[in-house]
Simulated scan of single mutants.
Amino acid sequence: MAAAGEKGQQIDLNQLSVQQLTQVKKQFDDEVQHLSNSYQNLRVAQGKFRDCVTSIRDGVADSVKDKPLLVPLTSSLYVPGTLASTSHVLVDVGTGFFVEKSTSDATKFYQEKIQELEKNIKDLENVVNGKANNLRVVEEILRQKMLAQQQGQVEGQAG
C-alpha cells in the first residue's frame, strides 16, 4: 500500500516502522483537522453572504423606507436610524473598504461570492476526503503492524 506524500512521492507504508507510521498518522490527523476547520469557516462565510442577500432583499425595500431601524455599529452595539436610500447600499468589499452599489449590483456581488465559495468548498471536500482515506489506510497498516509486533512478542516469550 502506498500513500502520496507532500511532493507527490509514493511511500510504501509497509516498509515504515510503527514509530514512523505513528508520525505519518499524526500528520494526517493534523491536516484533516485543519482542513475541516477551513471547511467550516468557508461555510460560515457563505452563510454571512447569504444573510447579506437577505438583508438587501428584505431590509432595503420601499416598504421600510420611513420606518425606524437599528443600525449595527459593532456585533453588540446598535443605534436608532432610518433608511436613507432604497436603491443603493454600501458593500464591504474586504479589508474595511466599502463601495456604494445599487441593490441589484450588491445582490449580484454577494451571489458571485456565494458561488465562488461553493466551488472552493467542493474542492476542499475532495481534499479532505482524500486525506481522510489516506489516514484510514495508515491507521489500518499501523494496526496490522502493532498486532504482528504483539504476536511476535507473545511467540518470543512462549518459545
Rank of each mutant, 00 (worst) to 15 (best):
V89E: 02
L117S: 00
E140R: 14
K108E: 13
K119D: 12
K65D: 05
D29P: 01
H88Y: 10
D58A: 07
F49L: 07
K48A: 10
G159F: 07
L135P: 02
V53N: 01
D62A: 14
P72W: 03
E155C: 08
G94E: 01
L147N: 13
V137H: 08
T86A: 10
L90A: 12
L70Q: 15
Q149F: 14
L16S: 04
Q19R: 13
I56P: 01
K119T: 12
R136D: 15
S17Q: 03
G94L: 03
V91H: 03
E100N: 05
V71C: 08
S85A: 04
R136T: 14
K65S: 10
E155R: 14
K101F: 11
A3M: 10
N129L: 10
Q150Y: 12
V154N: 07
D105Q: 06
K25T: 04
L35N: 08
R57Y: 01
T107Y: 03
Q157T: 08
A158P: 05
Y110P: 00
V44L: 13
I121D: 00
V44M: 03
Q9R: 08
G156T: 12
R43N: 13
V53L: 01
Q15H: 12
N120I: 02
Q15I: 13
K145S: 02
K26P: 04
V79N: 06
E112Q: 12
E112R: 10
E155M: 13
N126E: 11
G159I: 09
L13D: 00
Q15K: 15
Q115E: 13
E155N: 12
S85R: 03
L117D: 00
V99E: 08
K25N: 08
V71L: 14
I121C: 04
L135T: 01
T82Y: 13
P72A: 04
A61C: 09
V24Y: 00
V18G: 02
Q33T: 12
G96W: 07
A45I: 07
L35V: 04
I56F: 01
D30T: 08
L117R: 00
L70N: 15
S76C: 11
Q10R: 14
A3T: 09
G59I: 04
H88I: 06
V18A: 06
T74C: 09
Q115I: 05
A132R: 11
Q153G: 06
K7V: 14
S17M: 04
D58Q: 10
P72Q: 07
I141D: 00
C52W: 07
K119E: 11
L42Q: 06
N129V: 09
E118S: 13
V32F: 02
F98Y: 12
V18F: 05
L90V: 09
A4Y: 09
V127T: 11
L124H: 00
N37L: 15
Q144R: 15
D51M: 10
N126G: 15
E100I: 01
D51R: 10
D92F: 04
N37D: 13
N120W: 07
E112C: 05
V89F: 00
G159D: 06
I141H: 01
C52Y: 13
T103N: 04
